[in-house]
Design a protein around this nucleic acid. Structure first.
Lengths: 144, 144
DNA sequence: ACTAAAAAGGATAAAAAGGTCTTAATATCA
DNA sequence: TGATATTAAGACCTTTTTATCCTTTTTAGT
């Protein structure tokens, strides 16, 4: 469904969010260990998230990554997915047909449409605070 | 959502099905042109579909590909998707977590679950005759 | 100012996906 | 039976994705 980079990005964002709720800033190494991802690759992903204003990065000793409290409410899952994978997940034809649209639908157009719309809706309505809070309450882990 | 190979596979299968409805057998070249896919790559995909008993291949002059009439009803979209992409599309965690399940769900588990189930349900209930018939009735094309 | 700790960025490598080409196998038909 | 048309199969190439490594930049603390 999503690229590996996108999956790491969501896991990393949730972990940072959870720590940000507690007022803590986290370093790359900590994040990579926590979400069980390759450290160097994760660094690239965090850069991309920072460029897209999804997380905030601080250089230097005692630096790291954090998410401002008010961003926890405004940042939705879709923002992460779009930053990493673009929008071809929910837009575009399920069969890869460029000319497929409501006026000239491919045979599975309408069947896919419903699912894509639900997926998009879910991503648009889910914010980071909600997920991070769930994460803190439950015993769930972001590792593999 | 699906790999390119899977998209080509669905398009090819639908095209073959449509022709099979008319009692016609189609050659690789015809298929590749009809669905606008690279010929050599399509050949490989057709082999895979044949090995998975989704289509039937006939060698030699006047050979080609076809789908037996009764198969048009029994073959569902999911069979194609599973043959090409495996089952990680609807099974497996949206965040790539191996340990994620209902007992120990990741934060987005339940949100994804609904969508995955609907996707799977759609693929399980959609058969090839239905789609091929739609294709014949409408003016829609399988090309890009 | 100096040092150490952190992220940023560039170059490169490995793996997977996407795609091509050549040869073999098989079937038809003169 | 032999020539030919067609798919099958596997080797090979290309591009994209995933991943690593090394150097540079920034910054806090001393």
């Amino acid at each position: 469904m999503f690229s590996k980079a996108c999956q790491y990005a969501i896991r990393a964002t949730l972990f940072i969010a959870q720590r940000s709720l507690e007022g803590e800033r986290v370093r790359l190494k900590t994040i990579a260990k926590a979400i069980d991802s390759p450290e160097a690759f994760t660094a690239k992903i965090l850069q991309q998230l920072a460029r897209n204003k999804i997380i905030h990065s601080i250089k230097g000793p005692s630096g790291g990554f954090e998410i401002a409290d008010h961003d926890l409410d405004t940042i939705r899952l879709i923002k992460i997915v779009e930053a990493m994978d673009g929008d071809q997940v929910f837009d575009g034809c399920g069969l890869g047909l460029k000319q497929c649209n409501a006026a000239k639908p491919c045979p599975v157009h309408n069947k896919f449409k419903i699912i894509r719309e639900e997926l998009k809706n879910m991503l648009v309505t889910t914010n980071i605070r909600e997920l991070a809070t769930d994460l803190s309450v439950g015993s769930t882990v972001l590792r593999m």
